[in-house]
């Protein structure tokens, strides 16, 4: 295998855990040489850290033009680094940054592309990867030929914790951009703070009807002294407002008890709740991915179980 270029992502002034997961994935490929890439402004120290904590020789694009993420700047920087390092595999995390820029790199290099992979290994003239499809219901084994760009699912692997030799090397390239960064906006707080609840009862698409949330889901949350949540499709359909959404694009929660009713368990939901202390899943589909993160599962109609559970909880409290 050849050289693997690992693209770091900086969040809140530090290199993200997901970037060290990429390092671990790259280091797991037999015979590969690992190189890093750090893009930003005033990121020399972070690049040194990346170089010494697993990425090895690390290219740094340190430029005021890269102070904020910009698709054109990142696209140009990564293409230049791919060329400078001679990498035949470029790894990036499948985050809002990764899904914005990674496909552009592959199209620009006219090479293979695999997104949101959970595993990567060397292959015959390319790489072999595994990824989830159909919202986690099936897995796919994918092989590539020649140079490959791959984005990896954050959290699918563990972060690299070893050290490495290799200094940093400045890379300067044309970073002119067509797209223009304006600002980052933080959505206004709405008072629904699920992160403080001890118990969350969330409903998904399986609840089937917006009126069933106040009728079925909220009463169980109330009985348990907890809060009501929802999965993304519920919020997208306008059944509940965005503040109720649990998941990577909503609230990340870890209550003492999380009850998921009619939620199949798309990865973006699992990311938001899998750290909960105790998870109960209620779903008609025995193959629903939610059962893989649950402690206890009930394969049944939520309309039978949830109201009965509300009554039983009330009775138990006396």
């Amino acid at each position: 295998m050849g050289t693997i270029l690992v693209v770091a992502e900086i969040q809140k002034g530090a290199i993200r855990d997901a970037s060290y997961e990429l390092v671990a994935a790259a280091r797991g490929i037999e015979g590969a040489e690992v190189n890093g890439l750090v893009i930003g402004s005033g990121v020399g120290d972070l690049a040194s850290e990346f170089a010494s904590k697993g990425a090895g020789k690390t290219l740094v694009v340190d430029d005021p033009a890269a102070a904020n993420y910009n698709v054109d700047v990142w696209s140009k920087a990564i293409k230049a680094a791919a060329e400078a390092s001679g990498a035949d595999l470029i790894l990036i995390s499948n985050t809002p940054t990764g899904w914005d820029v990674a496909p552009r790199i592959a199209a620009g290099l006219d090479c293979a592309f695999v997104s949101d992979a959970i595993r990567v290994a060397g292959g015959d003239g390319g790489y072999n990867l595994v990824r989830r499809i159909f919202n986690g219901k099936l897995d796919a084994e994918v092989s590539t030929s020649g140079k490959t760009v791959a984005s990896m699912q954050p959290g699918a692997g563990t972060a690299y914790e070893g050290s490495s030799d290799g200094g940093t090397e400045a890379l300067s390239t044309d970073l002119s951009a067509i797209a223009k960064f304006v600002e980052i906006k933080i959505a206004a707080s709405t008072g629904v703070d699920l992160t403080k609840a001890d118990v969350i009862v969330s409903g998904g698409r399986g609840v089937g009807d917006p009126e069933k949330f106040p009728e079925i889901i909220q009463p169980l949350a109330d009985a348990l002294g907890g809060a009501m949540g929802a999965s993304r499709p519920v919020v997208d359909a306008g059944w509940l407002d965005h503040p109720y959404q649990v998941g990577s694009s909503g609230q990340i929660v870890a209550p003492k008890l999380y009850i998921a009713a009619g939620i199949s368990g798309a990865i973006q939901h699992l990311v938001g709740m899998k750290a909960s202390n105790f998870i109960v899943a209620i779903n008609k589909d025995p193959d629903a991915p939610i059962f893989e993160v649950a402690d206890v599962g009930i394969v049944a109609d939520l309309f039978d179980i949830v109201p009965a559970l509300s009554e039983a909880v009330k009775a138990a409290k006396g």
Binding site: V182, I184, K185
Partner: peptide
């Protein structure tokens, strides 16, 4: 992530 929005022109 986490409720943030990036404004781009």
């Amino acid at each position: 992530e986490g409720g943030a929005l990036e404004v781009v022109e």
